[in-house]
Simulated scan of single mutants.
Amino acid sequence: MITTPTIVIEWLDGADTDIALPAYETAGAAGADVRANFAPNGREGVTIEAGARALIPCGFRMEIPAGYEVQVRPRSGLALKHGITLPNTPGTIDSDYRGPVGVIILNAGSEPFHIAHGDRIAQFVVAPVVQGQFALGSGLSETARGQGGFGSTGRK
């Protein structure tokens, strides 16, 4: 049985509480849409010039259960239509972070792009986390790939 973790959200002082919390827009959605919340510093939004980036506030902080992370991913429609993406995709919000949530938006398009108060700007994907152990060794096992790096398996 799959356990559904609960992400507890708390509004920041002065945030517009009429803005929707992160939500899944369809029954099969893996990502919950998250919205810009520019209150209390005005509600006019921000225009991001081509090639520029900005930190867009979400108006809340959250508590993620231990053993999980929230991955921040771009919205495909914004990426395709306007070149709007996230430079650290996927971004990670760790379970022990309790500060304000914001999304770093990059305008990789050729035109300025305006983000209005309440616009859907990214997706949150809740994912389990496994912490590995790192140990110094004195030799690695051999594989067919070996040291073949970027592009070593070809284009096909």
Rank of each mutant, 00 (worst) to 15 (best):
residue 1 M to Q: 02
residue 4 T to G: 01
residue 5 P to Q: 06
residue 6 T to W: 00
residue 10 E to A: 07
residue 13 D to A: 15
residue 13 D to V: 03
residue 14 G to N: 03
residue 19 I to P: 06
residue 20 A to Q: 11
residue 21 L to S: 03
residue 22 P to R: 03
residue 23 A to F: 14
residue 25 E to M: 14
residue 26 T to R: 11
residue 26 T to W: 05
residue 29 A to E: 08
residue 30 A to Q: 05
residue 30 A to M: 05
residue 31 G to Q: 02
residue 31 G to F: 12
residue 33 D to I: 00
residue 34 V to E: 06
residue 34 V to D: 06
residue 34 V to A: 03
residue 34 V to G: 07
residue 35 R to S: 10
residue 37 N to L: 02
residue 39 A to F: 01
residue 40 P to V: 14
residue 40 P to R: 03
residue 40 P to Q: 09
residue 41 N to M: 06
residue 42 G to I: 14
residue 45 G to E: 11
residue 46 V to M: 11
residue 47 T to I: 10
residue 48 I to W: 00
residue 53 R to N: 11
residue 54 A to C: 11
residue 54 A to G: 05
residue 56 I to Q: 15
residue 57 P to W: 03
residue 57 P to M: 01
residue 57 P to D: 09
residue 60 F to E: 05
residue 62 M to T: 04
residue 63 E to C: 02
residue 64 I to V: 09
residue 68 Y to E: 05
residue 68 Y to T: 05
residue 69 E to V: 01
residue 70 V to K: 01
residue 70 V to L: 08
residue 70 V to I: 13
residue 71 Q to R: 15
residue 71 Q to W: 09
residue 76 S to L: 09
residue 76 S to I: 05
residue 77 G to E: 10
residue 78 L to H: 08
residue 79 A to M: 12
residue 84 I to D: 06
residue 85 T to M: 14
residue 86 L to E: 02
residue 86 L to Q: 00
residue 91 G to L: 01
residue 91 G to A: 09
residue 91 G to M: 05
residue 92 T to P: 02
residue 93 I to L: 11
residue 94 D to K: 01
residue 97 Y to C: 02
residue 98 R to F: 07
residue 102 G to N: 12
residue 102 G to R: 10
residue 105 I to Y: 15
residue 108 A to C: 12
residue 108 A to H: 07
residue 108 A to V: 02
residue 110 S to Q: 08
residue 118 G to C: 08
residue 118 G to W: 07
residue 120 R to C: 09
residue 126 V to G: 04
residue 128 P to D: 08
residue 129 V to S: 04
residue 131 Q to W: 02
residue 133 Q to F: 13
residue 134 F to H: 07
residue 135 A to E: 13
residue 137 G to V: 04
residue 137 G to K: 04
residue 138 S to P: 00
residue 139 G to Y: 15
residue 139 G to D: 15
residue 142 E to S: 12
residue 144 A to T: 12
residue 148 G to D: 07
residue 149 G to W: 08
residue 149 G to E: 07
residue 151 G to W: 15
residue 151 G to S: 08
residue 152 S to T: 03
